[in-house]
Simulated assay, not measured.
Amino acid sequence: MLVSALIRRVQDSGGFASVLHKGDAISGTILVQCLDKGKETGLFERISDYAGGYRLVACGPDKDGGPHLVADYIARRRRSDPDLWLIELDIVDAERLAVETLC
Rank of each mutant, 00 (worst) to 15 (best):
M1K: 10
M1T: 11
S4V: 13
L6T: 01
L6V: 04
I7C: 11
R8F: 09
R9L: 05
R9Y: 04
R9Q: 13
V10D: 05
V10K: 12
V10Q: 07
Q11Y: 03
S13G: 12
S13K: 15
S13D: 11
G14P: 00
G14Y: 03
G14N: 11
G14C: 06
F16S: 10
A17Y: 02
S18P: 05
V19R: 13
V19E: 14
L20I: 05
H21P: 08
G23M: 03
D24M: 08
S27W: 12
T29R: 00
T29M: 02
V32A: 14
Q33D: 14
Q33A: 15
Q33F: 13
C34T: 06
L35H: 06
D36E: 15
K37L: 11
G38E: 13
G38F: 01
K39C: 10
T41M: 06
F44A: 01
F44E: 12
E45S: 01
R46F: 00
R46W: 01
I47M: 07
D49F: 02
D49A: 02
D49E: 05
D49M: 10
Y50C: 08
Y50T: 07
G52H: 09
G53Y: 04
G53A: 12
Y54L: 03
R55F: 07
L56W: 00
L56D: 01
L56V: 01
L56P: 02
L56E: 01
V57F: 10
A58Q: 02
A58F: 10
C59G: 04
G60T: 09
D62A: 08
D62W: 06
K63W: 07
K63P: 03
D64G: 11
G65A: 15
G65S: 13
G65Y: 10
G66E: 11
G66Q: 08
P67W: 12
P67F: 12
P67H: 09
H68N: 09
H68E: 15
L69Y: 14
L69G: 07
V70S: 09
A71S: 15
A71I: 05
A71N: 12
D72I: 09
Y73H: 06
Y73M: 08
Y73N: 13
I74G: 09
I74A: 13
A75D: 15
R77C: 07
R78P: 06
R79Q: 13
S80F: 08
D81Q: 05
D81V: 02
D83M: 02
D83F: 01
W85D: 07
W85V: 00
L86V: 11
I87Q: 12
E88T: 10
L89N: 11
D90I: 03
D93W: 08
R96V: 04
R96K: 06
L97F: 14
A98K: 04
V99E: 01
T101S: 15
L102G: 07
C103W: 02
C103G: 03
